[in-house]
Computed example of a mutant assay.
Amino acid sequence: MKTLTSIIVLTLSVFFGNAQESEEKGQTITVTIENIMNNNGQVLLTLHNEATFMKAAPLKSENSEIKDGKVSITFKNITPGTYAIIALHDANNNNRMDFADSGMPKESFAVSNNPVLYGPPQFAQAKFNVTSENIEMKLMF
C-alpha cells in the first residue's frame, strides 16, 4: 500500500511540476492604451516579427472592449525574439482597418515605440526585443 501511495504521489508531483513549467514558458507583453477617443467597438492588437509585419497574418492577435477610453491587453507565452505590435481602434467591429477614398485610415492605429509616422509603419521603427523579462508598454493613438 505504501508503494502504491508513493507512486501516486510521485506521478502527481511530476504532472503538476510539468504543468507549471509549461504555463511559465515564454514572457508576457502587456500593452496599455489610455487615450482612446470613445468606447465604440474594440481594440485589436497584433504581434508580428519582421516577416509578418504589414505583409502576412500576425503571430498572435488579441482584442479587448474599451472601458473609459482605456484597454490593457496581454500576450502570453512569447519566446525571446524581435517583435512589433500594431494596434487598431476598430470602432465599427468589422475586424479590419477602414480607409477613406484617399487611402488614409479612418480609424485610429498605433505601433510599438509610438514613432511619428509619415506613411505606412515600418518594422524598423516599431521593433523591440523580448528577452528574459516581461514587457509592459503604452501605445498612443
Rank of each mutant, 00 (worst) to 15 (best):
M1D: 09
M1G: 11
M1C: 08
K2Q: 10
K2Y: 09
T3G: 05
L4V: 14
L4T: 14
T5S: 09
T5W: 07
T5Y: 10
S6D: 07
S6W: 03
S6I: 08
I7Y: 10
I7M: 14
I8P: 01
V9H: 02
V9I: 15
V9D: 03
L10V: 14
T11N: 10
T11D: 04
L12M: 13
L12F: 11
S13H: 01
V14A: 15
V14L: 15
F15M: 11
G17Y: 06
G17R: 05
A19N: 14
A19V: 09
Q20R: 13
Q20D: 11
S22G: 00
E23C: 04
E24M: 09
K25E: 10
K25V: 11
G26F: 10
G26W: 10
Q27V: 09
Q27C: 06
Q27P: 00
T28C: 06
I29D: 08
T30D: 00
V31K: 03
E34F: 00
E34Y: 00
I36T: 10
N38L: 01
N39A: 09
N39Q: 08
N40D: 14
V43A: 05
L44S: 06
L44R: 11
L44W: 02
L45G: 10
L45Q: 12
T46Q: 12
H48D: 10
H48R: 06
A51P: 00
F53L: 03
A56Y: 01
L59F: 04
L59R: 03
S61T: 05
E62N: 10
E62C: 01
S64R: 09
E65H: 08
I66N: 06
K67S: 13
D68V: 02
D68A: 14
G69H: 03
G69Q: 05
K70H: 08
K70R: 15
K70Q: 15
F75E: 04
K76M: 02
I78N: 03
I78M: 06
I78P: 01
T79M: 15
G81N: 07
A84N: 08
I85F: 07
I85P: 07
I85H: 06
I86R: 05
I86L: 12
I86G: 05
H89L: 06
A91H: 08
A91M: 11
N93Q: 14
N94V: 07
R96D: 09
M97C: 03
A100W: 08
A100E: 13
A100R: 12
D101A: 14
S102C: 04
S102N: 15
G103Q: 05
M104E: 12
P105C: 12
P105E: 13
E107D: 04
S108L: 10
F109L: 11
F109S: 11
F109Y: 15
A110S: 14
N113E: 04
N113G: 02
N113H: 02
N114S: 08
N114V: 08
P115E: 11
V116Y: 09
L117H: 07
L117I: 04
Q122V: 03
Q122I: 00
A124R: 06
Q125I: 02
Q125E: 13
Q125Y: 05
Q125R: 03
A126F: 06
K127R: 12
K127P: 00
F128N: 00
F128P: 00
N129L: 10
V130I: 13
T131V: 05
E133H: 12
E133K: 15
N134Y: 01
I135M: 01
I135K: 07
E136W: 02
K138A: 07
L139F: 03
M140F: 01
F141G: 06
